[in-house]
Design a protein around this nucleic acid. Structure first.
Length: 478
RNA sequence: GGCGACGUACCCAAAUGGCUAAGGGAAGGGUUUGCAAAACCCUCAUUCACCGGUUCGAAUCCGGUCGUCGCCUCCA
């Protein structure tokens, strides 16, 4: 089965074939660490995580690089031009960002290069562009990329641009720099008074890098001049990624990125999150009410190219589904579990080997769905359908432990991509089982008062009980 | 003004030319249960914003209308 991915470059789904064998070089635009990342930021990282995990599932070795933008207009402004303050601010938010990644079970990138630690590479790249005359220096010492020189700019690329139609007037008047062309973008920003002691003394002069150049420099440093996949949020398509293509390809003469992928935005309760509306939602705002797994599932369950309206209702739904899935896994495990709960009769049909027609068949459906540009809805649908099948078998006492183990195993396989099962199931204390046994005895004696009392006790301890044909199952309350 | 996306049941959300329009949630009814919980079963869009057109055949293609949204400026 071939993986098809939508390419922003061609505006079509394309078969994904890595440039080299099974090696996938992947670059994802990371955060600018000037404040706490909000839940919308994390949507993009969750999408990239799904992509990365799926590529790995398909047998690829993925090398993922994600930049940390720790110097730019916003971070400098926040630091008031104080370099040590800049560092302390950016490190704080970088830490918060990474903590969020781990909460949401997002696998770590191989590298998280910081802009401030990649200055040499950026300068080198800008020097190359100057040599090739794709860039020019202005009187104040800044360096710009010349769109006029680079004739391929904006044509047959991510966006179709007609330079004549651009609203030039407004921009020129707003721009304090001396550019030759209205669309030229800055590679190197000469030092200004407000920058304070935040500058680098380089062959280009005293100043700091522009924003776009860092991704080109970092990706080249860690992944080479040609990447398989570059992803980010849709807002990055223009101008950021368009500019990256121009400067990278102008410098290297090679095709920069084979596959561009962009994640649509998240809005919250029907509104775009913005500071002015005061509705910026941070991950920690949600973790107070919902489990990380539910948040992750909610972010995951809308296809990445559709705008996601995150609502309280949706998060509740996700929480319910997480419960459903974990309960299912427990149920299947229980069928071969310990103690008195595992003595399920092995019927003829369910014995040992999976026979034809009784095989677990969500694997092809699931994979086929994700092969189609990560169609998560279809994939989850396959998952739910299979859970129902297995639950029916279990209800009918028509499932053997070998088969149940297969279901658990299969679920775990899919969770390698979904990442929504809790890390490990918390061990349930022996005393809980003892109380359950007491209650079982009470129930056999039809002492309902005692039975209910024990149930209440366990409820207080944090467990809900389920009486099933296979015995009573304690479920940890969320 | 330019570029682009979308509009499927009460809600979320797939299916992009052809069998009965997935799946999840909510709701109602039922099986099961000492009671509960969970699980399971049934019901829930003759219809895919609206109007035309192409086609043997369209939610899916084309044109128009209305509506929602994004980008064009820092932004995942």
């Amino acid at each position: 089965m071939t993986l098809k991915l939508y390419n922003t470059l061609s505006k079509k789904k394309e078969d994904f074939v890595p440039l080299q064998g099974k090696e996938v070089k992947m670059y994802a635009c990371g955060p600018t660490v000037y404040s706490y990342p909000h839940i919308g930021n994390y949507r993009a990282y969750v999408f990239e995580d799904l992509l990365r995990r799926y590529l790995e599932y398909k047998g690829n070795k993925v090398t993922l690089v994600m930049n940390i933008t720790d110097v730019d207009d916003k971070t400098i402004k926040a630091s008031g031009g104080d370099k040590s303050k800049l560092t302390s601010i950016t490190r704080r938010y970088e830490k918060a960002f990474k903590k969020g990644l781990s909460i949401l079970n997002i696998k770590s990138a191989d590298e998280y290069p910081r802009a401030t630690e990649t200055i040499d590479e950026m300068v080198e790249l800008i020097e190359t562009l100057l040599e090739k005359e794709y860039a020019y220096k202005t009187d104040d010492g800044s360096v710009y990329f010349s769109i006029e020189k680079y004739s391929k700019y904006g044509r047959d690329n991510l966006v179709q641009l007609d330079p004549k139609s651009m609203r030039a007037g407004e921009r020129i008047s707003e721009d304090e720099y001396d550019k030759e062309g209205i669309r030229d973008f800055v590679l190197w920003k000469a030092w200004k008074e407000e920058d304070g002691d935040i500058f680098w003394e380089t062959s280009l002069g005293k100043g700091r890098p522009g924003w776009h150049i860092e991704c080109s420099a970092m990706s080249m440093k860690y992944l080479g001049e040609e990447l398989d996949i570059h992803c980010g949020g849709v807002d990055n398509i223009f101008p950021h990624h368009e500019n990256e293509i121009a400067q990278s390809e102008a410098a290297s003469g090679k095709k920069f990125v084979k596959q561009w992928m962009h994640c649509a935005h998240l809005i919250y309760e029907g509104e775009k999150m913005s500071k002015s509306l005061g509705n910026i939602i941070l991950l920690e705002d949600l973790t107070k009410k919902y489990s990380p797994e539910a948040i992750r599932l909610a972010l995951l369950s809308t296809h990445y190219r559709s705008q996601l309206d995150l609502t309280d209702k949706k998060l509740k739904e996700a929480e319910g589904n997480i419960q459903k899935i974990t309960a299912f896994r427990q149920r299947m495990k229980r069928i071969r579990g310990k103690g008195r709960f595992d003595d399920v009769k092995l019927s003829a049909t369910s014995s040992v080997n999976l026979s034809a027609g009784r095989s677990i068949k969500f694997q092809p459906d699931f994979e086929e769905a994700l092969d189609d540009d990560l169609n998560i809805s279809e994939a989850l649908s396959a998952l739910y359908r299979t859970m129902r099948e297995a639950n029916i078998l279990s209800d009918e006492n028509d499932i053997g432990k070998d088969e149940a183990v297969q279901y658990v195993h299969q679920l775990d396989e899919f969770d390698k991509m979904l990442g929504i099962l809790p890390e490990k199931e918390a061990e349930i204390d022996e005393s809980v089982y003892e109380k359950i046994k007491e209650r079982e005895d009470a129930r056999l004696a039809e002492d309902w008062a005692l039975s209910d009392k024990i149930r209440d006790e366990l409820f207080e301890m944090g467990y809900n009980l389920e009486d099933t044909p296979h015995g009573t199952i304690p479920k940890r309350k969320k």
